[in-house]
């Protein structure tokens, strides 16, 4: 469904992504893991159209999408929940959700989508008319995910959805991701919570300084000694 081929991204002269190629098949839950600064966020931003890769190809459902503006990419069925959420804090919960459904392809179903999101996140229902800024961290993350779902994406990309949340809320977020996946949404997840995301993921990619170093099923990578040493705190060498 999503094909990234030989992607290269630069920030000025600094190379953030180097010849990265990954493929996410329709219906899978894929995870992108790696240390801070490895280039996970850059990859997602490039797919969403917010940064322009220097070279390489990004294709979605067989059509090249790199070079398209972000609002066009949403129309193709890709939605990103960015790191830090980017909520419209001067707007209400309802208005944020409505904005999420502004894409032409989602507009006619916006009433149904709203109902769907509110039953997925009942907490938002009671906050419906409140300012997004007044929500707790967990509620804000739910709003960010809900808002992304309003465009009825075929591919949902989540960037660090559990960052800074209380453990109980993290559980809820992962449950929701699992549920969305069960409902047929293809998911590309970037997480600092490596164990949890590998347990969830059918396919996982490890990137290091902008390059793909490992890929496999989530279960395989959980057993991989390099992964265990680097991300899971298992193994003798702690350096």
């Amino acid at each position: 469904m999503l094909q990234i081929e030989k992607l290269n991204i630069f920030y000025g002269d600094a190379k953030a992504i180097k010849d990265l190629s990954i493929t996410v098949k329709e219906g899978t839950l894929a995870a992108l893991v790696g240390a801070n600064g490895a280039g996970k966020t850059s990859t997602l931003l490039a797919v969403a159209g917010l940064i322009r890769p220097r070279s390489g190809k990004i294709a979605f459902k067989g059509q090249t999408i790199n070079g398209l503006p972000p609002e066009e990419i949403v129309e193709r069925g890709i939605s990103l929940v960015p790191e830090g959420r980017w909520l419209f804090t001067k707007m209400t919960v309802a208005e944020n959700l409505r904005m999420g459904g502004d894409a032409s392809r989602a507009r006619k179903d916006s009433v149904d989508s709203m109902e769907y999101v509110l039953q997925l996140f009942p907490a938002l229902k009671s906050r419906y008319r409140m300012s997004a800024a007044s929500l707790s961290g967990g509620e804000q993350q739910m709003l960010a995910i809900g808002r992304a779902l309003m465009s009825k994406p075929h591919l949902l990309m989540l960037d660090e959805p559990s960052l800074g949340l209380a453990p109980l809320v993290v559980e809820t977020v992962f449950e929701v991701i699992q549920r969305l996946h069960d409902e047929g949404v293809t998911i590309l997840l970037v997480e600092q919570n490596v164990r949890e995301s590998l347990q969830l993921a059918q396919k996982a990619f490890v990137i290091k300084t902008g390059t793909l170093t490992l890929s496999g099923t989530g279960a395989d990578l959980l057993e991989n000694p390099d992964v265990q040493k680097a991300f899971l705190g298992i193994g003798k060498d702690l350096s």
């Binding site: 609002e71 960015p82 419209f88 804090t89 208005e95 894409a103 032409s104």
Partner: peptide, 15 residues
């Protein structure tokens, strides 16, 4: 209002 507050986020919404 959305585009005034955060143009990038607005673009991600399809605005």
């Amino acid at each position: 209002r959305a585009a005034i507050e955060n143009p990038q986020a607005a673009a991600l919404m399809g605005i």
